[in-house]
Design a protein around this nucleic acid. Structure first.
Length: 321
DNA sequence: AAGACGAAAGTGGTTGA
DNA sequence: TCAACAACTTTCGTCTT
């Protein structure tokens, strides 16, 4: 083994998805798209390609300041943003353009028009909020590599939250993040709160608070996270065989039956099960690797797997001669 | 030199008064 | 709102390969 893992080799490199034709791991060109998890996977070695490697930089290159200035499309908008089609206002003074007092009939009509104008405006504020939220949703979805159906569901959830009045006083971003988190859990595409809040300016805490509030105030119900949903993803990152992943899920099932999974971090449990399963199949991964793939610490993997091994009476192959 | 292990102290979140 | 609490993280020293 020479030094770096594949993860480390690829880290920080820009790999625009469209440009990848062959697997960076084994060189095969048999890449398949898994729409369920929104990932491109190498059919030969199982390497997950598209998940995190999204090029967030510009698609152009500039060699001096002037060129950069010209090509950059970010910064203050050139034209003023018009919130909706009704940007005009109706004057409250009942006078015409020349300053003459209006007749009674006209006054009444203007009053009515004004009222409808306000109503149309108010309604569009909801629409406007949705449009902005949609932008956030698309951005975060792309950065997290989430499939369409999750985003669609997240949008529905967001709309519900908006209609319930949950967004008022909170940032759109954090509520969108909460909606995405809820959608992920509902559709069993596990993403941790940490992963999601990484792409928002609102902190993890904010997102979590919005999420909890959302569960309480709207009638959205979300199944409890199961460690078994995490196992395939961790297996993918570590490039383990499908058999090992199946074994790991088996271990988790047993653990659930004897009731030692309650209150434990599902990612940590899944990591431990993966570690055990891989070891038993001779696909040795270090605790560190497993921990990193599951985004928990080494210590947690260790504690969980000790517990699992003890309670399930699994003996591990110590080493090979 | 790297991995596994466990102890101890610290952290963030939940719960119940 | 506060304190108690359980789970997880960080850090560190030791042992094994």
């Amino acid at each position: 083994m020479s030094g770096k893992t594949i993860d480390e080799e690829l880290m920080g490199k820009f790999l625009p998805v469209e440009e990848i034709k062959t697997c960076p791991h084994c060189g095969s060109d048999k890449l398949i798209y898994d729409p369920v998890r929104g990932e491109v996977i190498c059919a030969i070695c199982g390497y997950v390609i598209s998940e995190r490697e999204i090029d967030k930089g510009p698609e152009w290159r500039a060699f001096d300041g002037e060129e950069k200035e010209k090509r950059s499309r970010v910064g203050a908008p050139i034209t003023r943003y018009t919130p909706d089609a009704l940007a005009t206002d109706i004057d409250w003074r009942s006078r015409d353009a020349a300053g003459r007092e209006l007749g009674l009939r006209k006054k009444v009509e203007m009053f009515r028009l004004r009222r409808w104008h306000m109503r149309a405006h108010a309604q569009s504020s909801l629409e406007r909020n949705l449009i902005q939220a949609q932008q956030e949703l698309d951005r975060m979805g792309a950065q997290l590599g989430l499939p369409r159906r999750v985003l669609d569901r997240a949008r529905e959830i967001y709309r519900r939250a908006l209609e319930t009045g949950l967004v008022r006083g909170r940032s759109i971003e954090s509520v969108v993040a909460a909606a995405i988190y809820a959608a992920c859990r509902e559709l069993k595409v596990p993403r941790t709160l940490d992963e999601i809040s990484k792409y928002t300016r609102a902190g993890r805490k904010d997102v979590a608070r919005c999420y909890r509030l959302m569960l309480r105030e709207t009638s959205i119900k979300v199944p409890l996270p199961s460690p078994m949903d995490f196992a395939p993803r961790i297996g993918n990152v570590l490039k383990l065989s499908a058999a090992s992943v199946r074994d790991a899920i088996d271990v988790l099932k047993q653990a659930q039956q004897i009731g030692i999974t309650a209150g434990k971090d599902p990612a940590g449990l899944a990591a431990a099960a993966i570690y055990i399963a891989a070891l038993r199949r001779g696909e040795v991964r270090t605790q560190k690797e497993v921990a990193r793939a599951a985004q928990v610490t080494e210590v947690t993997v260790r504690n969980r797997y000790k517990e699992l091994a003890k309670r399930l009476k699994i003996d591990l192959p110590v080493k090979k001669p």
